[in-house]
């Protein structure tokens, strides 16, 4: 299958602190990779490197065959290919839901307004938020905001979706509505990299699990092996913290 993302020996350092080094990861079209690991292990930073929100000190990242580099001239068009959803939603507070969705397709892709609006409405209906199209973000619940944020990424037709702990800031009863959306995206064959602490969800959605600790990939594999027969002690220990 076609490779969408290739990460070769990537290192991330701040002055004297190494966040991670020698990261290697290949993601194929349609694959869902879930990254887990203890807080501060570098998994979010890794995700942010993939669309050059963070710079890297060594190695290279190829997205759909193109090198990801914040300094390159066409970084905008490379970033379009990687839709990102953040823990804190980060919708634009001065725009309505519909305007939030239409901003990037109209400004960046120069698409026709009418056509984008029609697509936005279809997508909103799909996530159950059609009635909220004229609301402002502050009028929505956390779960609703996050569903809008997912649609805002989708409407740019990205090759890959990067989801950075998208349920971490949500009240427990809202986690479900957001994860259901992600599950349905996985079913339709979207390529995704998901950083999460929701282990049951990870197991349900993942084609491949990756465990990062101390800035290294410690273990990876298919979800059954990963959860039922972890090979490393470190992963066993980590998974233990999630069971009572």
């Amino acid at each position: 299958m076609e490779e969408i993302l290739k990460v070769n020996n990537v290192c991330k350092r701040y002055e004297d602190i190494t966040v991670f080094e020698n990261m290697n990861l290949t993601v194929k079209k349609g694959e869902v990779v879930v990254i887990v690991g203890p807080s501060g292990c570098g998994k979010s930073t890794f995700l942010r490197c993939l669309n050059a929100l963070e710079d890297i000190q060594d190695g290279e990242i190829l997205l759909d065959g193109e090198k990801v580099d914040a300094a390159s001239k066409n970084i905008g068009s490379i970033r379009e290919k990687a839709g990102m959803v953040f823990q804190s939603y980060d919708l634009f507070p001065h725009l309505t839901v519909l305007q939030n969705l239409m901003l990037a397709p109209v400004k960046v892709k120069k698409r026709d307004k009418k056509e984008v609006e029609a697509e936005a409405l279809t997508l909103l209906e799909r996530v159950g938020l059609l009635t909220k199209k004229d609301s402002f973000p502050r009028q929505l619940s956390g779960g609703q905001k996050q569903r809008v944020a997912i649609v805002r990424a989708l409407i740019m037709h990205p090759e890959i979706l990067l989801l950075d702990e998208i349920t971490a800031a949500l009240d427990p009863e809202m986690v479900r509505e957001v994860l259901d959306v992600v599950l349905s995206l996985a079913k339709e064959g979207r390529t995704m990299i998901i950083v999460t602490h929701e282990m049951q969800f990870a197991r349900a959605v993942a084609d491949r699990m990756v465990f990062i600790d101390n800035g290294r990939i410690v273990e990876e594999g298919n979800p059954e092996e990963f959860f039922d027969n972890p090979k490393t002690d470190r992963l066993k220990q980590f998974l233990q913290t999630f069971s009572y």
Binding site: N51, L53, G76, S77, R79, E80, A82, G83, M84, F86, D90, L91, F92, L103, A104, K107, V108, K109, A149, R152, A153, M156
Partner: peptide, 9 residues
Amino acid sequence: ESALALGLS
């Protein structure tokens, strides 16, 4: 960051 991630210049 969220604007840049969407590809805005």
